Computed example of a mutant assay.
Amino acid sequence: MFINIVSLFSKKLGARLALFLFTRPLKGRINEEQSDFLGTSFREELLVNGTPVMTYRWLGKGKTILLAHGWESNSARWQYLIEPLKKLNYNIIALDAPAHGRSGSSRFNALLYAEFIQGVAKKFKPDIIIGHSVGGMASAFSQSNPENSNLKKLILIGSPSEFTDVLKRYFKMMGYSKRTKNAIIALIKKRFNVETISFSTAKQLELLNLEGLIIHDEKDDVIPYHDAILINKSLKNSKLITTSGLGHSMNDESISNHIYEFLEN
């Protein structure tokens, strides 16, 4: 492993290279088919801390829903859900994450994504946020801002709970040495001035007074089902729906039906 070799000579350089790979998506830009669908929306680019954030709106007279996609994806992934929600007259907003879709930045992390969500929420004041995967984690982190106090419901689909576990899975996948892993953790602490254990969806949700719906597949091979259990226990007024065989993407009509039922109650 090249980065492990680099770390033998310079832990700091090895950690920077590893973190660069971890925060730089290889997919998620919009293709022609996705562009056609997103072209049915009202597009508006916002600036959040100087970085452009692309938003897409399908106008309705009902409650406002904000959609936050996951890693190496973009707002078009919500097409299966947006079309039915339009018929129910919801006011729908989706945003592209940092370094995804048509949004700016060359790097991605959940805290930066949370800032994007905060900026969009400040302008459009959603009643409901739906987040998939790390979009769910970022949605939870975004609630540290009291300006988002109008939020009533939060739906998390296949979302991770503990960032430390995300890191462990990344380390294992990449085959990093103990020296490299320790250097990465030290670099994250230095950059964000906080321990990695502090990045927790479950802990973030403990004090929030929201209605929550957690949907997770028991065979999810990207984010373990155990994460959903942790989140469900922390968000007091929440319901956990367990699926089987839908994997991590969860693009299925049955998921939509669970969401509609939750929204209408």
Rank of each mutant, 00 (worst) to 15 (best):
M250T: 03
L205Y: 07
K236A: 11
N109Y: 04
G39V: 11
H69A: 02
P52Y: 08
S10Y: 15
L235W: 09
M250A: 11
T55D: 12
E83F: 01
K236E: 06
A186S: 15
G104N: 05
L8S: 08
P160R: 10
H248T: 10
V53D: 14
L13C: 00
N145I: 00
V222F: 13
P98T: 00
A18W: 13
L213F: 07
A121D: 06
F2I: 09
E45M: 03
A186F: 06
A202G: 01
L235E: 07
E261W: 00
N4Q: 02
K87T: 01
V53G: 05
F192T: 03
L187F: 02
S159N: 05
K168R: 13
L230P: 00
L235I: 10
I214P: 04
I92F: 11
A110M: 13
G136R: 02
K239E: 14
T243N: 04
K219L: 11
P25D: 06
R179L: 14
L210R: 10
G175D: 07
D36V: 14
V53L: 09
L81W: 08
G14R: 13
F141A: 03
E261L: 04
E253N: 12
A228C: 11
K27S: 07
G136E: 12
E195H: 10
N31T: 02
L187V: 00
T242C: 08
S149I: 00
S159V: 03
T64I: 01
L59W: 02
K233D: 03
N4K: 06
T196F: 05
K181Y: 01
F2H: 07
S254W: 02
G212I: 12
K63E: 15
G158E: 06
K172P: 01
K12F: 11
Q79W: 02
A15F: 09
D227C: 10
S142A: 15
P98Q: 08
A138T: 05
N148H: 12
F141C: 07
N193D: 14
Y260L: 12
D220A: 08
I155R: 03
H248E: 11
V222P: 01
D221F: 13
L8A: 12
T40F: 01
K189N: 15
K190C: 01
S149P: 01
A202S: 15
I92Q: 13
S256F: 14
I128E: 14
W58T: 02
Y170L: 14
I214K: 13
K125T: 07
L154E: 13
I215W: 06
T64R: 15
N251P: 00
A140D: 09
S149M: 05
L151D: 05
Q204D: 10
I92G: 12
A202F: 03
I231M: 07
G50R: 08
A228Q: 03
V120C: 07
F124V: 11
L85C: 12
K172V: 08
